[in-house]
Structures are given as C-alpha cells and as structure tokens.
Design a protein around this nucleic acid. Structure first.
Lengths: 208, 208
DNA sequence: CAAAATTAATCAAACGATTGATTAATTTCC
DNA sequence: GGAAATTAATCAATCGTTTGATTAATTTTG
C-alpha cells in the first residue's frame, strides 16, 4: 500500500482557512478543523501552538503574498490613468480569485477584539493604498487628473470591489448565480473592471 | 427609596447589540449579555427564547426602521440627480449614525452559516436598492443620465460608505481619529457626502 | 373591600454538551 | 535507535439552556 504522503500541517491550514471563511473564527471549532483536514486535534497545537496560532499563520501567509504584486506597476513608463487602470484590474482579479479569504479579512477588520490582527491587516493595506495615492496624486500634479479627494476615490475603488464580493446579489439578481462558478466569476470580474475603469476615467479626466 | 423601573427586556437588547457589534455573535456569550445588561441569564431565554432569538429581534427592529426613511424621496417633484443626492445624504447619515450596527450587519452578510439572516438582510436591502435603481434608470430614460451599469453604480455608492465605516483609517490617516467622536464623525460625513455627490454628478451627467 | 387565585418577572443553581488545550503512549521514518 | 509525527484519552473551563423556587403585581372571587 502506497503511503500517500500528505502534509498534515498544510492540510490543517487549508481546512482552517476554509472553515474560518465560512463560519468565522469563533464559529469554527478545533474539532471541525481536525475533521476537515483529516488530522488529529492535537496536531493543531503541535504545529501552531493554538487555534489563534493557525489563524495568525493564515493571515501572515496571505498578507505576505500581498505586497509583491503591485510594486512593478508604478515603474512602468505609462500614464497615470493607465497605471490606475492596471491597479484596478490587478485588484479585482486578486480579490475575486480569493473571495473567501477577502471576506474573512474584511470581517476581521470590522471586529475590535483582536487589535493586533486589525493593525496587521491595516498595515498590509496601507502600503498598497500609498501606491494608489501616489498614482492619483501624481496625475493631479501633472494636470491630467482633476483635483479630487484622493482618499475618497480609493475608498470608492476598494469599497466597490469589497461590496461586490460580500453582497453580489446587489449586482446580480439572478437566483442561481454563484461566485464560485468560474463562468459567473469571469463575468462579474469583467463587469467590475469595466465599471471602475470607466468611472475613474470619467471622474478623474473630464474637464469641467 | 424610589424603585427606578428599568425595562430588563430592553436592557438585554441594548447590551446584546453592543456586544454583538464589538465581538460578533459567536464571540459574545449569554453570560456577558446578562452581566452587561444587569439582567439574570435566564431572562434572555425567558424573553427571547434563545441567544439567536435576541439576535433576530435586534435585526428585525433595526430593519423595520430602515424601510420607512427613503420612500418619501421618490415622490418629490425634483430631478433624478437631486433625488440621488438626497438618497446619498440619507444613506451616509443613517449609516454613520449607526456604525456599530452597520458593521455587524455587514459581518453577518459575509457569513454563510445563518442563511435565514442573510436572506433577511438581503431582502431589507433589496427594497432600498430597487428605489435607487428606479431613480437612476429613470434618469437614463429621460436622457439626463448617461447609460451606465446601474447596479455597479449602486455597488459603488453602498461600497464606498461601508468601506469608510469599516476601514476609516483608509481615509483618515490621523492616529487619534475616532468615528465615535461627534466632531470627527461630522467631518467624515460631510466629506463622504460631498465626494459621492460630486462623483455621481460627474459620472452620470457629463456628456462625452 | 379583602382574601384567594393567578400571572409575570426574577433569581441562583445546575444541566449536558462543547470548547481549546494537554497528556502520555504509540507509530513512523531516517 | 532516536527524533519527529501521530494518536486516543482526558483536562478544566465555558458554552447556551433549563430548572425549581421566590417575589411582586394583578385579577378573581366571596
């Protein structure tokens, strides 16, 4: 009999992330994680020390993957609007490819009970926000963009995407719509990108 | 000594809402609710049947207050843009006056474990969404608004507000900023309204 | 009106179940 | 053979809920 080598540690992380996303941190028990991952309950504490240790590990892993994606964009020799459009495309794709995690992150952000996690997410976000801020501010300074409330524009871009992830029914009234269905996801991605690019183009570059 | 008559039932509701907002539904114990409200633990089940009964009661109360506010706007003899601006003003004010509850509602919306609550929130929202949809669609049909993705515009308006409530640090980098501080709240309200009204005006009425 | 009966509100205590965590023994693997 | 990985069994603590009793207020009755 072949010993199918499975990494229990990884299995726990994946099972935990799935369950945390679905039922929240408090709503998920270590026994559920053990059952879902096929590992013994004690393995959770063996590898991660505690339930919270698993959670922190998941967040750290994910957040680490955040930073690397967007930095390249700002170096390209393209217009501010083009940069912004690429950022939007990158954001929409990444968030809609990780809807479950994004929901969890947002949920955590709305809770006051784990301030160190709140700060961690905040810090992870702030870097990307500074990048977008830089792009828009540059556009304003060189005269291609209107003078707008930069931070509010960012809130609008981020907020729109998050809103679509968390409450897709607002956009699609179709009852059998499913964000996990690749075809549906592709459609909503394209629609979101098109909308946000159109919106920013009109709002930022229309001369009054 | 005057017997200061306190309504325990109401006290439980208020304490529970506060705690649910702060630490989530699963993260709040009935013992905490009892202690915070000054009521005996048994009173929770006596009045509401269960912990979930308290939660449902809170949501129902709040949602009931939702519907009545916006319906009047659509009857006024004003332009579509004017209507939309009033809706934005109403929304921003209401949500920023109830940030804790709005956070809780949004958190609940991102969980899949209480589908009946999800549907309840969804239904409560959908009425208001139809109203906004109607306003924008009318504006498009009579030629005052550009042809846009109506549902996406709604997602943008809602998403912006929610994003500001849940992650105000994105907008205000000031460290001692506090949404519970009336002065700070007033400022962020005005800024949000101004931004969204400006955004919708430019995006919907600028002729290309 | 006043005694009796009924009701609603409140309480401390305890219920069984479940929680996250730990133990000590066992198996796996190099 | 010994370190690492895995297990079943168990821990105290906490969970949401229920209980039986008590108080205070109200209603019914003679």
């Amino acid at each position: 009999m072949k010993t199918e080598k499975v990494d229990k540690r990884q299995a726990i992380l994946e099972a935990a992330e799935k369950l945390f996303c679905e039922t929240g941190y408090e709503g998920t028990s270590t026994r559920q994680i053990a059952k879902e991952s096929g590992a013994n309950m004690a393995m959770i504490n063996y590898y991660f020390g505690s339930k919270e240790g698993v959670f922190v590990e998941i967040m750290n892993e994910r957040i680490a993957g955040f930073a690397s994606q967007l930095k390249i964009i700002n170096e390209d020799k393209i217009s501010a609007l083009e940069k912004l459009h690429r950022v939007i495309e990158g954001y929409v794709n990444r968030i809609l490819n990780n809807t479950a995690f994004h929901k969890m992150m947002h949920r955590e952000l709305s809770l006051t009970q784990r301030p160190e996690m709140y700060d961690k997410i905040k810090d992870a976000m702030s870097h990307n926000m500074q990048l977008i801020d830089r792009i828009i501010t540059d556009g304003i300074e060189d005269g291609t963009f209107n003078k707008v409330d930069v931070r509010m524009v960012i809130a609008t871009i981020m907020g729109t995407i998050t809103n679509i992830v968390i409450a897709p029914h607002k956009v699609i009234s179709c009852s059998n719509f499913d964000l996990n269905n690749p075809k549906d996801k592709k459609m909503i991605k394209e629609r979101t990108i098109a909308h946000l690019q159109d919106l920013t183009t009109v709002y930022l570059t229309t001369k009054k």
